[in-house]
Design a protein around this nucleic acid. Structure first.
Length: 118
RNA sequence: CGAGCUGGCCGGGCGGCCGCGUCGGCGGUCCCACCGGACCGCCGCCGAGGAAAGUCCGGACUCCGCAGGGCAGGGUGGUUGUCAACGGCAACCCGGGGCGACCCGCGGGAAAGUGCCACAGAGAACAGACCGCCUCGCACGCAGGUGCGGGGUAAGGGUGAAACGGUGGUGUAAGAGACCACCAGCACCCCGGGCGACCGGGGUGGCUCGGUAAACCCCACCCGGAGCAAGGUCAAGAGGUCCGGUCGCGAGACCGGGCUGCGCAGGCGUUCGAGGGCGGCCCGCCCGAGCCUGCGGGUAGACCGCACAGAGCCUGCCGGCGACGGCAGGCCGAGAUGGAUGGUCGCCGAACGGCGCGCCGUGAGGCGCCCGGGAACAGGAUCCGGCUUACAGGCCAGCUCGUCCG
């Protein structure tokens, strides 16, 4: 799972990643990636709002996403910040389905990122 | 064996691989004058619920206040206990339901006052003559009687949740607690029992009095306010001011440091006193030079609180009908802060489903096998005691009623 060091914790970091980062949307989730100079390893955060479901459902979705994000984090550059925002259909999706959407969202966000930077 | 009542408990299990958080230990790297700290790795312990939920009560804890008194406001509502406390719990009382085990009750006062009682019905709260019954007068008629008008009457009919006690008799033109007996009910008094709510018995009285207080209200008792974003420490901070330095002829600009903690506008006020203590108001007392409103701006980071030896949990004994209390021994049980307790695979698996197969039974159906299926409600966030609500299903104990056998 995600060690504490590679988590996003600050409110303004979340805000800037969602606001200024590159988006990759899928039906069950949205991936935001932003590069901040001086980063010491990629970090990630999750957003699961009340629209997704009750407390039990939200926690289940967050746990599954955490497990899915962890191995994919190594593939990102060390100055990357990642935010995965779950949408209501994620509530009753399996881990395999979430993985599919995560990979797809990540791919298109990274493509936009490399296009804009260069 | 069937039907039921009550109480308690559990609420998916096992394993492989990969992970997360707190704490502890060991090792390494780095910072450091010291104390110590940061990061990494390995090992070990522990790591969601019976409701963690709703946030409905009660407390612990923290801050504000403590000079009071009155009014207002809120809460509770049979009694006696129990508890840190409670609107909780226990036992009992009363009323209602059930053959019973048991269950249900927002259970003070309606004879202090006020309000409200739909529809139906003639009439609904100082009752009420629609039909009926009785009687008087007049008219008609030989008569039984009929019609019109006046009066008496709550026994009967009909309406209603409810029609102003019930049954029998005396009485009367017909009737009526008008009177009498018994019964029910009410008020008061006496005796006995019980800590008490209340129960049992007797007497007297006028003869009878509706419901609603989760309508106002009355009575008794209780109640300061805000809440862990409480609160504390540190850091940062916009602006102001002072000192020093640099640049500049100068106005000033920039840098560093100290103190303070913002700026602008408007209003009210400084012994004719705003405002605060004071929370709704008043009186009183004390403090007293600032306070209020609008606009703009800043902060919401870290640590402590906070992971706690406690109204703690488990076992046994004792007291008590019980809630609970006492004593002895043992145990230490999550602590995150964008929020850990998981992901994935395999095996086993309850409910449930199947024109499936076999056996038993007259039958509804039951049992076994096979196949499918794959677990309810729901996750801490300062901590406890309760209440309420949600919940697939399972287990245990005690008790009641019925049937059969002995």
């Amino acid at each position: 799972m995600l060690p504490a060091r590679s988590r996003l914790t600050r409110r303004d970091e979340f805000a800037s990643v969602i606001r200024r980062g590159r988006r990759g949307g899928r039906s069950r989730l949205v991936v935001h990636v932003h590069r901040v100079p001086g980063g010491s390893g990629p970090r990630a955060g999750l957003v699961v709002s009340k629209a997704v479901g009750g407390s039990v459902v939200r926690h289940r979705v967050a746990r599954r996403l955490r497990h899915l994000v962890a191995p994919r984090l190594d593939a990102l550059p060390s100055d990357a910040l990642l935010v995965v925002r779950a949408l209501p259909p994620a509530a009753d999706a399996s881990s395999a389905e979430l993985a599919e959407d995560l990979d797809g969202g990540l791919r298109s966000a990274l493509r936009k990122l490399s296009g804009s930077v260069r």
